[in-house]
Write a protein that binds this DNA or RNA. Sequence first.
DNA 1: TACTATACCTCGTACTTAAAGGTATAGGCA
DNA 2: TGCCTATACCTTTAAGTACGAGGTATAGTA
Lengths: 115, 115
Amino acid sequence: MRQGNPDFMNGVPELLILKLLAAREMYGYELVQSIREQTNEAISLSEGVVYPTLHALEIEGALKSRRNTVNGRSRVYYSITKLGSRKLARIADAWSSVTRAVQSVLQGAKHASAF
Amino acid sequence: MRQGNPDFMNGVPELLILKLLAAREMYGYELVQSIREQTNEAISLSEGVVYPTLHALEIEGALKSRRNTVNGRSRVYYSITKLGSRKLARIADAWSSVTRAVQSVLQGAKHASAF
DNA sequence: TACTATACCTCGTACTTAAAGGTATAGGCA
DNA sequence: TGCCTATACCTTTAAGTACGAGGTATAGTA
C-alpha cells in the first residue's frame, strides 16, 4: 500500500469514472470531488490518477470530450461513448465476479454460487 | 490487465491467503487449489503469486511455517500468528470499506452509509 | 521408462496508483 | 494593488504487485 487509499484499488478509478460519466457529462476536477463525496471519503482519488485515466479512456475511444468555458473557467467535459458503455458493462461484471468470489471465501462458504 | 484474472486483484491474494490460514493450517500448493475451487474458478492464483506472498507474510511475522513430510512429500505448512490475525482484521475491514464505497457509486446512491 | 501430479521456488515484466510538483485564472479580502 | 485560496488542468517519478515463464525434485502410474 502506498498511502491514502487502503488498497484493493486496482481498476477501481476506471470503473468509477466510467460509471459516473454514464450518468452525466462531467469534468475532471468535478469527478475528483464527486467520488470523494459519494463514497463518504472512503475513496479519494488524486488528480494525478483521474486525469491520466480520462486521457487513456479517451484515446481508446471509451470517452469523448469537449472544451467548455463556464464562469470564465475553461473545463474539459467528458462523456461516455457506446464503446465506453460496453467497457463499463464488462468491467462492472468483472468487479462483481471478483467481489462475489472474495466474499464467498471471507464468509467461509465451501462453494461460490455460479451466478 | 495482465491476463488470467480480470483485474481488481490488488491485495486480494494476501487477503484470501490470510483468511484461509485463519481457518486451518495449509501449504502453498493446497492454497492455490483451494482458492480456485472455493471461488468456482473466478479467482485462480498462480504459484508465482502465492509463494512470494507466503514468504513476505512470514517475514513480517503474520505467518509461521513448519516443514512436514506427508506420503514422502515435503510440504511447508503455514499457520497464522496473532499479528497475522490483526492484519487480517485490518485488511478485511479495508476490503469492506472499498467494496461498499464502489457499490454505492455503482448503485447510483447519493451517499454511502457511514457503516 | 516416460509421463503426470505434486510441491517448492525465483526472476523479469507490465501495469497501476499515488504523491509531488507545475501552470494558469477567478474571486475575496486587506 | 497585492495576496491567498479555490478552481482547473497537466506531467513526471516512484513504488508496489500480480502474473507468467521457467526451473528443480519426488511419487505414482501407465
